[in-house]
């Protein structure tokens, strides 16, 4: 009888221990503070739609006309920000992007349906922060094409009359294939698989003049 009691005791202790382990496991289950709220395929569609890209022209328009409902956010570090920034901008450096008070600020701006325009020195610098915020579910976040570099006119003349605006950084600056052919002209005999064509020959003549001038 005594023996059975002892066994029962041990059994209940084991049962309690078992349950405790499960409960502790659930409690300590790591829940990340941030989660991507936008599914990855939707996020890709958002990026490909180019809807959230703002041209520098539009940005100057907003600043010069003091249009309401927009907030420029400079994601460069405070030092760069101090050297010069868009007049109405606030500084949230990309390092501090997910700090709790900044997240609270983004939440507040979303609530007030303020359109947030992120910019860095160039588009590339703000691209990461912009994509993170978009995928966290902030719908009202835009990115400034060309960044501060273009906006401030430091490097480019915004009103130059070129066909493709210079802030479209993904436009090729060279005709890659033509340039490669031109440059490899003198060496094309070495290139494998080049001896099968005679079409190249007239092109070579054309390019000789260019070589004299440029290379």
């Amino acid at each position: 009888m005594k023996d059975t009691n002892q066994r029962t005791n041990r059994l209940s202790i084991a049962a309690i221990f078992f349950v405790l382990v499960i409960i502790i496991g659930f409690i300590t289950l790591h829940k990340p503070e941030f989660e991507f709220k936008v599914p990855i395929d939707q996020a890709l569609d958002q990026v490909l739609s180019f809807e959230d890209e703002m041209t520098p022209e539009k940005a100057t328009d907003i600043v010069s006309n003091n249009m309401a409902g927009y907030q420029f956010v400079d994601v460069r570090n405070p030092y760069e920000f101090a050297k010069g920034h868009i007049e109405t901008a606030i500084n949230i450096s990309s390092k501090e992007l997910l700090a709790s008070d900044n997240v609270a600020l983004f939440d507040q701006m979303t609530k007030d349906s303020v359109r947030v325009i992120l910019y860095g020195y160039n588009q590339s610098e703000a691209n990461g922060s912009w994509m993170i915020l978009k995928q966290l579910g902030y719908k009202n976040v835009k990115i400034l094409l060309g960044g501060y570099e273009y906006y401030s006119g430091e490097k480019y003349n915004m009103f130059s009359e070129s066909e493709i605006p210079q802030y479209m950084v993904e436009q090729p600056k060279y005709n890659f294939a033509a340039l490669m052919e031109e440059l490899s002209d003198g060496n094309s005999a070495i290139k494998p698989g080049n001896n099968h064509t005679e079409v190249i020959i007239p092109e070579r003549k054309k390019k000789k003049s260019k070589v004299e001038g440029g290379c």
Partner: peptide, 16 residues
């Protein structure tokens, strides 16, 4: 890509 914006976007999705 031609610049590094599209490439970084691809990086971001693959990394995610």
């Amino acid at each position: 890509s031609n610049a590094d914006v599209y490439a970084e976007q691809a990086w971001m999705f693959a990394r995610r």
